[in-house]
Amino acid sequence: MRHAHSGPLKQAGEGALLALTGVNTHIGHYHILQGVDFAVAQGGFTMLLGRNGAGKTTCLRTIMGMWRASAGRIIFDGADIAGEETPAVARRGIGYVPEAMGIFAGLSVAENLTLAARDGPIDTSRLEWIFGFFPALKKFWNLPAGNLSGGQKQMLAVARAIIEPRKLLLIDEPTKGLAPAIIGHMIEAFRELKRTDTTILLVEQNFNFARALGDTVAVMDSGRIIHTGAMADLAGDPGLQQQLLGLSLDAHQ
């Protein structure tokens, strides 16, 4: 494993909201995560990058308790949450946007958000704030979520994770399958989100998106973290990008 330069992630765990040490995950007979170590700084925007099949989704699902870590520690907000059930992990203050979005197609936009606001009725000023960057949700408030477009579904999935303040957001490929115009819109929305004190760990394949938002970056390959550092350093080093991600910027506009 190589750690590039210095940076907030160098000392895994120090001042971090979330820290994984030696996390292993098996799915059936497959050994998917093979000792994952990295930390997410409090208040920061961390990008988790890596090639297809590197284990990014598995990593987020393991944090959420959807896969059980077979070894290692997952420290969130001072407590080891490895081995906790998913609802308990969520109630510690973690919002999750899965890769497939996980919206409830038969429920209206309003019902999707009502369910996500588990501490009571939706806070209207917070809702207005969300409508500010996702106006489609206001427009289609009473529509079954299954009738929304792909981009609108993604907005609903993100809105659901932030309808109440959460300490940490885990977001899996929010740009997957979206048209470039909508990706630009998403970037704006996440910029707005960055202004709050929410900590974000976001999985991405779209390097432009990652570069536009990330403070720090962790790169996975074959179930391990192979690089951590500042986003700016990776963004400024095409050779390193090529080496870690197997992509050049031009190929990934």
Binding site: T86, A90, Y96, G102
Partner: peptide
Amino acid sequence: RAGVEDGEMVEALGY
């Protein structure tokens, strides 16, 4: 109703 569609996601919302 949400659980019938996707119980795992209902759990991820904390229920």
